[in-house]
Design a protein around this nucleic acid. Structure first.
Length: 549
RNA sequence: GUCCCCGUAGCUCAAUGGAUAGAGCCGCGAUCUUCUAAGUCGCUGAUGUGGGUUCGAUUCCUACCGGGGACACCA
């Protein structure tokens, strides 16, 4: 429908002698302003040298004619806006589409045929996934689904550290405890804690851990490598369990150790070409002149830094996955680093750098202060989820539903905000299960589903209201919102829309009786349209939809 | 010191350069014999400061104040 409106406006502008105007078509904040509003007259007035208000007055009837039966009112307003109100017939048609299309409702084609590779979550093996990882994991899955919904083929990958000092600490801890066959992530976590403590307190242990670190890099000592492989697999099993709980999965799991060799090779090639240069024995990218930070890619000890590994990973992805676009989602503290990496990659392999895009997510920070492993106030992802499930259990005897409500609450907390801004989490107040929250969305859907369960066929009295209900005028915008959320990498746009939609449904629900009312058939169709929209929106955000609450 | 991000109601967040700056939490008051009250309805309350661009600025530019982050051998 937005397309139709846009075309009608373009036609009207052409008749007024204005072509190629870049105008907006939006959903007005005030419903009294109609279903669509445009600033076309305001923008075009400047080009034509006319008064915006009178231009709007002359455009309105032209637009109304072009829309024909679809519009009931087109009028200018304010400084020169044109407000378009759809006819009851047009609203009714769109609502029945929302009903009839089922799971197809809201699907777009903006990204049809595209192959998108998206990287997110990125926990490090041998460490626990902490609460901060939830942000990237949740936003990454929502973005993936939003992009898929626009017709793209999405391939998900995650990239984690599996070498380095922290890994050596964990392995050292396992060796000392003579635990050569660890069974679960908790044992690895305990071993890491022991190793980290010893590293600080004992010179001897420090030396042993440093040696072990080198041995892991070298990969020659079979006993060490066996333990390393086993430990890594146990970490990954725990991650996969959490990913599944969060409704995500990965087609590729990449590791540090996969990227070091390639990274070193490419950077050294780049050195020969003059893209990198030597400085005090290290190989650096001198970014200052290009407006990015100068960074070391290979240390003077000939070990690659994360920047070289990022380059190695970019080449590894090219080798493994065909893609038209590569998205990398990380915390916003890495924004500066990625600018340097992308600048370097732009010189090494412009065609890869061009399709690569870094998207930043915010921090999860505690209301009481920063989360820091040194201060020991780190909240693990698993622990946070458990806490919220416990709270949700107070109102839900069924453990599956308690889990769905808890996951929904956590995900909504993350998705409601613009990605990139920090999320303040107060473990004392815990998170909201009412108001602007995930369960509010779930609850609205449950109430609609309950009505539909009574009678799913279109029987019932067939009276119709004089005007469409307010919620109908919201439902019809769903496909546009989903498309924009995908285009702008902004799941929060969809989350905010769904809250508004749930609110409209709850108001409708409080005022209007559905079953047994004179408009039963009409309202049942509306309930189905709402349920399809809410269920679809929750699916795109990967928020579970409980059957009852 | 250089670069990036952010300052909106007591708190947590919204607002593609547009119309009367929206929600939720908290507080106060209504509302369950009716499809589930995790709901609904009502009330109070905000753009860090000074300039500028614009018909119009929370949004763009600039200076300042305040917060966070990144800046050569850590991951």
């Amino acid at each position: 429908m937005e397309e139709k409106v846009r075309k009608a406006i373009e036609g009207a502008l052409a008749k007024a002698g204005a072509e190629g105007i870049n105008f907006a078509v939006e959903r007005p904040v005030e419903m009294a302003h109609g279903d669509y509003a445009t600033n076309a007259a305001l923008v075009a007035a400047k080009a034509l040298g006319k008064n915006p208000k009178s231009l709007a007055d002359s455009l309105a009837p032209l637009i109304e004619d072009a829309l024909g039966e679809d519009a009931s009112r087109v009028e200018s307003a304010g400084p020169g806006f044109i407000n378009i109100t759809l006819s009851s017939a047009a609203v009714g048609f769109l609502v029945s589409e929302a009903d009839a299309k089922g799971e197809e409702w809201g699907k777009g084609e903006a990204e049809a045929g595209k192959r998108v590779l998206i990287e997110y979550s990125n926990p490090n093996a041998f460490k626990e996934m902490h609460a901060g990882h939830l942000v990237g994991t949740v936003i990454g899955e929502a973005l993936s689904r939003l992009i898929e919904n626009e017709g793209a083929k999405v391939v998900r990958d995650t990239f984690g550290g599996d070498v380095g000092p922290n890994v050596a600490k964990a392995l050292w801890g396992l060796q000392k405890a003579e635990n050569l066959e660890p069974q679960n992530a908790a044992e690895i976590g305990a071993a890491y804690a022991a190793g980290a403590k010893a590293y600080e307190e004992s010179e001897e242990a420090k030396q042993e851990i440093d040696d072990l670190n080198q041995a892991i890099y070298a990969g020659k000592d079979e006993a060490v490598m066996d333990l390393w492989r086993r430990g890594r697999e146990i970490s990954m099993e725990e991650f996969r369990r959490l990913w599944k709980l969060l409704g995500t999965h990965f087609d590729y799991e990449f590791f540090d150790s996969d990227t070091t060799e390639g990274g070193i090779r490419v950077v050294k090639d780049g050195l020969a070409k003059g893209i990198f240069k030597e400085s005090d024995g290290a190989i650096i990218y001198d970014g200052e002149a290009k407006g990015v930070h100068t960074m070391v890619f290979i240390t003077s000890h000939q070990t690659p830094t994360y920047e070289a590994k990022d380059i190695g990973l970019a080449f590894l992805k090219e080798e493994r996955v065909q893609s038209d676009e590569i998205i990398i989602l990380t915390g916003n503290e890495q924004t500066g680093r990625f600018k340097t990496v992308l600048a370097a990659l732009g010189e090494l392999a412009p065609q890869v750098a061009e399709k690569m895009r870094h998207v930043a997510t915010g921090f999860l920070r505690l209301a009481s202060g920063k989360m820091s492993s040194r201060e020991g106030n780190v909240i693990t992802a698993a622990g946070l989820i458990e806490d919220v499930i416990k709270r949700a259990s107070e109102k839900n005897a069924d453990p599956l539903i308690a889990e769905q409500v808890a996951i929904g609450a956590i995900k909504y907390m993350i998705l409601r905000q613009a990605p990139g801004s920090d999320i303040v989490f107060d473990p004392v107040k815990s998170l909201a299960l009412d108001g602007d929250s995930g369960p509010y969305l779930q609850y609205a859907l449950v109430r609609a589903a309950k009505i539909l369960a009574y009678s799913s066929e279109g029987a019932g009295a067939a009276a119709e209201p004089a005007e469409p209900y307010a919620i109908e005028r919201l439902i019809i915008h769903y496909p546009e919102v989903a498309a924009r959320a995908a285009r702008e990498f902004a799941p929060n746009l969809l989350a905010n829309y769904l809250i508004e939609l749930a609110g409209a449904w709850n108001s409708f629900y409080a005022k209007e009786q559905v079953l047994g009312s004179p408009e039963e058939a009409y309202k049942m169709r509306l309930a189905r349209a709402f349920a399809n929209t809410m269920a679809g929106g929750l699916r795109l955000l990967a928020i579970p939809a409980p059957e009852r609450m």
